[in-house]
Design a protein around this nucleic acid. Sequence first.
DNA 1: TTACAATGTCACTGTGTGGTGACATCATAA
DNA 2: TTATGATGTCACCACACAGTGACATTGTAA
Lengths: 201, 201
Amino acid sequence: MIRDKQKTQEKMIAAVGYILARDGFSKFGVNSVSRQAKVDKALIYRYFGGLPGLLRAYGNSIDFWPSLDEIIGDIEVFKQKSIGEKMAELLVQFARAMRRRPMTLEIMAWELVEHNELTQLLADVREQWVEKFFQRFSDEISATNLDIAATSALFGAAINYLLIRGRNTHIFNKIAIDSDLGWQRLEAALTEMCLRCFISA
Amino acid sequence: MIRDKQKTQEKMIAAVGYILARDGFSKFGVNSVSRQAKVDKALIYRYFGGLPGLLRAYGNSIDFWPSLDEIIGDIEVFKQKSIGEKMAELLVQFARAMRRRPMTLEIMAWELVEHNELTQLLADVREQWVEKFFQRFSDEISATNLDIAATSALFGAAINYLLIRGRNTHIFNKIAIDSDLGWQRLEAALTEMCLRCFISA
DNA sequence: TTACAATGTCACTGTGTGGTGACATCATAA
DNA sequence: TTATGATGTCACCACACAGTGACATTGTAA
């Protein structure tokens, strides 16, 4: 017996991550979490008021979304690129950042099936992200005569889908989307597409 | 009481479609299907050997994947287009065809979460589809100096994600992905991207 | 008409789940 | 030392689900 509220809370929050990463959200629940944390499930209700509260606590405990800085890298180098190169770099780095966050991918898959506090949190953070992104690049992109929102929605959707699908599928469209090699090809294709699409008029 | 084996079987198969379309796969099960079909669940086991068998029967009963012909439309008109126009037309028509198949979208969402006979069936059909597609267009596309598989994987993934997401989300990246208006923008962007990317070298 | 097989019905088991109230144990402040 | 509140434990409820064996009803063939 531990008798340390904070520590048991942390154990529960950590268990959420374990379950999501190992079994996915379909196995996620009061019983599985409490089993994993070796803690009585009653404490989930006493300390967090139930699963939603525990989810919220978990959501605040991790960085499930990369910052613009993590994506951009060296700002000086970045500035000197063309708009096509910039977009390519952004998308490639975004994909890599998400590949490092399996739990976020799990939640993104969840998002396609049902709504809960966690998926809502994720959606909110993404909205802010998109907002910042548009503020920063709308001028440059609009010079390319493209529908910014629609085009970036398509690119983002493509990456999201392949990342989510790659969790439990080897091959999609003849590409090994669960391996580094497959993603190298995808990054190359992504880059080529950006260079061809994003050209200032 | 009906006393008509074939008819009750059909009722069960139809119920599968109802449940998938109305509630999604998360509510799908022996009890929900039998309730919907107003049939005793024991018959699912007696006639189909269980849920997987019923799923297989359901899978064989509908066309959940469009044919190449449905996508291409008038072959003569199609032939005269440029490679960029062809790809744009294919992708746009593919998206429209899938929007007409909510149950297929439901199964595609399922595919991102778990494997079963139905998702496997879908995957198999798609593989054949991709195969045919490559046979038909690989020469033309390879003239564009693009990685065919990777590029079409990206386009396909984008469309899949937005379709799946659109089932229960209004807005993605500022686009109303659940409405005709949103899809008009997406189609336009898709077309523009194809025209810029797929150009014979 | 009778016997039988096919069809449909029902009650039941076992398991897993979310959720709750009563109880035991411990640390600490009075 | 004792009383109190915080922490952890446990048994239990109600529900939904998958699955099954015994039974009732019907059509039909002999």
